[in-house]
Each structure stands twice: as C-alpha cells, then as structure tokens.
Amino acid sequence: MDKQTQIELEAAAFRTLRDHLMDKRTDVQNIDMMNLAGFCRNCLSRWYQEAANERGIEMDKNQARDIFYGMTMDDWKATYQTDANPEKQAEFEVSFKENVGGKD
C-alpha cells in the first residue's frame, strides 16, 4: 500500500470513529471512555488540535472540540453528559494522571 492511500484510510477510520461517538454513541460518557481506554473525546480533539498546530494551523482547544463534538462543549454537556458517581470520579483521577498528565 502506498503512503497516500494509508493516510487516506487512516483519516477515514478517524472520521468514522469521530462520527460514531458524535452521532451514534452520545450515551457513552467521556469519563467511562477515559476509565476504560485511557482516552476520551477531549483527548481526540486535543490530538486533532496538536496536529493542526504542528502544521502551522492556528486552532485552540475550543475550536478543536467544536469540530470533534459537532457543537460547543457546553452544549454537549447540557445535552448528553450525565453525573458521574464518586467511584467513577476516583477512577478518572487515576486514569487522567496516567494517560494525560498535565494536558487537558
């Protein structure tokens, strides 16, 4: 497989993942994703922002999140986010430190 085809396939897979989380699995909470997989929608949007910035494209955290969520973070939280119990919050603290550290 040539490099350009590989890039196009990877981009298509990423778009499918983004669309799946944005449209089909809005019930899946970020805290659950972070606790189970070590990343969440915010991580994906941060990686998107970092890739843009590395290529000289100015993009801040909120712009990247708007692209990834399909709406503002506040709108997403109001529409889809549920409260996490103390156990999930404690698990999140550990997972966040292990997988994200000082980045947000």
Score class of each variant (00 low, 15 high):
54 E>F: 00
6 Q>D: 12
94 V>L: 00
99 N>T: 02
58 E>T: 00
46 R>P: 07
28 V>H: 12
16 T>Y: 06
99 N>S: 02
17 L>I: 05
30 N>R: 13
95 S>I: 02
8 E>M: 15
10 E>Q: 12
40 C>A: 15
1 M>G: 14
57 I>F: 00
90 A>V: 00
48 Y>T: 01
60 D>V: 00
83 D>Y: 06
17 L>T: 04
73 M>L: 08
69 Y>W: 08
51 A>M: 05
53 N>C: 07
24 K>H: 14
82 T>I: 11
29 Q>D: 11
61 K>F: 05
42 N>W: 14
64 A>H: 10
12 A>R: 10
37 A>Q: 06
49 Q>M: 15
33 M>I: 11
56 G>M: 01
39 F>Q: 03
93 E>S: 03
65 R>E: 09
14 F>Y: 13
38 G>T: 01
49 Q>E: 13
28 V>K: 11
1 M>D: 09
58 E>L: 00
1 M>W: 12
56 G>N: 01
40 C>H: 10
67 I>D: 02
51 A>K: 01
59 M>F: 04
74 D>Q: 09
4 Q>M: 14
7 I>F: 10
37 A>K: 05
8 E>A: 15
102 G>R: 02
22 M>Y: 03
90 A>D: 01
91 E>M: 04
101 G>T: 02
91 E>D: 04
94 V>W: 00
79 T>L: 05
40 C>S: 14
31 I>S: 13
41 R>D: 11
102 G>I: 02
81 Q>Y: 09
8 E>L: 15
53 N>R: 06
11 A>G: 09
60 D>H: 01
56 G>F: 00
17 L>N: 03
15 R>Q: 10
78 A>R: 08
68 F>K: 01
62 N>C: 10
4 Q>N: 14
95 S>P: 02
64 A>G: 11
68 F>S: 00
48 Y>G: 01
70 G>C: 04
79 T>V: 03
30 N>F: 09
88 K>A: 13
19 D>N: 04
18 R>E: 04
56 G>V: 00
15 R>E: 07
75 D>S: 02
50 E>K: 11
50 E>A: 12
64 A>N: 08
66 D>T: 06
48 Y>F: 15
20 H>M: 08
28 V>S: 09
72 T>V: 07
87 E>A: 09
41 R>T: 07
5 T>I: 14
53 N>H: 04
64 A>K: 06
77 K>L: 06
80 Y>A: 07
52 A>C: 14
81 Q>A: 14
84 A>F: 06
27 D>M: 11
45 S>Q: 09
64 A>W: 07
85 N>E: 13
13 A>R: 15
102 G>T: 03
21 L>K: 05
65 R>Q: 13
51 A>N: 03
65 R>D: 06
77 K>M: 08
14 F>E: 07
27 D>I: 12
43 C>S: 12
67 I>C: 05
2 D>V: 12
34 M>K: 05
93 E>F: 01
14 F>V: 12
71 M>L: 03
32 D>R: 13
39 F>G: 03
22 M>W: 05
10 E>S: 11
41 R>S: 09
12 A>S: 14
98 E>W: 00
27 D>E: 14
28 V>R: 12
70 G>L: 02
21 L>R: 06
3 K>C: 07
84 A>W: 05
70 G>E: 02
98 E>K: 01
87 E>G: 06
12 A>V: 09
43 C>M: 13
90 A>I: 00
6 Q>W: 15
86 P>S: 05
83 D>W: 06
